[in-house]
Design a protein around this nucleic acid. Structure first.
Lengths: 218, 218
DNA sequence: TATAATTATGAGCAAATACTCATATTAAAT
DNA sequence: ATTTAATATGAGTATTTGCTCATAATTATA
């Protein structure tokens, strides 16, 4: 009914190696089950079954279904952050130009979403998450925006006014569009490469444009 | 488990006026309940309770929970299409310039999503819909893109190359960004007006830019 | 007013599901 | 080899939920 507190800490932490493997196997199975069934229909019994462990084993390490979702989301945030920093590193070291950099960025986001088109969505929208997780999510999003801004700012052809707002919009745009595109792989009427090109084109135009308050190009 | 067929036609169609009112009340309640609980947790009993009718009454007009969701989605598509055409009419009649037109478009989409931030999402992503509904949805989306394209094409300052792809990206962008912005009203660190301005700015820059294949502005 | 058609009711059923616990198995420690 | 700790098991339970159906109340019709 109303949102009530649930245990998130496991009753047992894995100490031996086989149990650590078990935890990994369960999380992998949970990813697959949530991907193909959604959160509500992704039952704990199904997850255990897919993982090849008994339902009792699952509840040894995850005291509730919610705890599994939280663990998956934390993993996802960590991975995203890692990939983003790796990307910035590559771009700086190899001195790619703005177009190449953005191309890489959009392609990378597209690939990430293509691998698990629904999972992020399910965790963010279908799963009732505790407040602290929601906060962590917002912080991760803003951190990502700052990381991207840090790279883009290095390019001299980019205009400097409203830079923070601009980067916010860009990050949201790429995140939204790539997710949306990857979510429906069957019915695309724009080929993937074209899509990436168009998005990059839009961002570059946006980054270079200079307008007065009435949005007329100067 | 797997997707099985379910009844979608009601066992009784409302003929008297009070029953038509009942149907409306149920759909309104369903909107609210799905909004605040999601699809899976939005139980039929809760919907009936919120509507102030008995569970039996609900099942007189909606033979399954899924039928309620389908009805809501069809309503939503109709309303969206209607608003879009109204918008095009206004813009043409009152001869607004491109900036004003886009401003109106983005603001309108933002308002629509602000009214029911989760509903569209829930119906599209959480609800297992029959194939024909999914098809109708795709068609509606492409129809919307064409409608928008029809208006934008009237403005001479807009470049003409890749027009179809460009409009597809624009529609997806506005849809995604406004939805995302409206979905989290509490934690926005960009004010609403600024957000709209920035999105419009990006679209105009994208519509006017002319680039070679390597995305260098000519 | 009497009869028929329509609409509303809600207790309860069958199925699904998150989760428990007493017990068995395996690995580490002594 | 023996004891102890860690890990795995899965039948079973309490609860939830979509939905039915026999009956009652209301409105239309004759």
């Amino acid at each position: 009914m109303t949102a009530r507190k649930k245990r998130l800490d496991p009753r047992k932490k894995p100490v031996q190696n086989r149990s650590k493997v078990t935890v990994d196997v369960i999380l992998l199975a949970a990813t697959q089950v949530f991907e193909s069934h959604g959160y509500a229909a992704g039952t704990t019994n199904r997850i255990a079954s897919r993982a090849g462990v008994s339902i009792g084993t699952l509840y040894q390490y995850f005291p509730s279904k919610e705890a599994i979702a939280v663990a998956l989301l934390e993993r996802h945030l960590t991975e995203t952050d890692h990939r983003l920093h790796e990307w910035v590193g590559h771009m700086v070291v190899e001195q790619h130009n703005l177009c190449e950099a953005l191309h890489d960025y959009v392609t990378g986001m597209l690939e990430m979403h293509a691998k698990q088109p629904r999972l992020q969505h399910i965790l963010l929208e279908e799963t009732p998450l505790p407040e602290r997780v929601h906060q962590a999510l917002l912080e991760a999003e803003q951190h990502a925006a700052k990381t991207v801004a840090g790279l883009i700012r290095l390019y001299p052809e980019v205009r400097s006014n409203c830079f923070e707002h601009t980067c916010f919009v860009i990050v949201q745009t790429v995140e939204s569009l790539t997710h949306r595109y990857a979510a429906h792989p069957d019915d695309q009427f724009i080929p993937r490469a074209t899509f990436v090109d168009e998005v990059v084109k839009m961002i570059i135009a946006y980054l270079k444009c200079d307008m007065n308050p009435h949005n007329e190009v100067l």
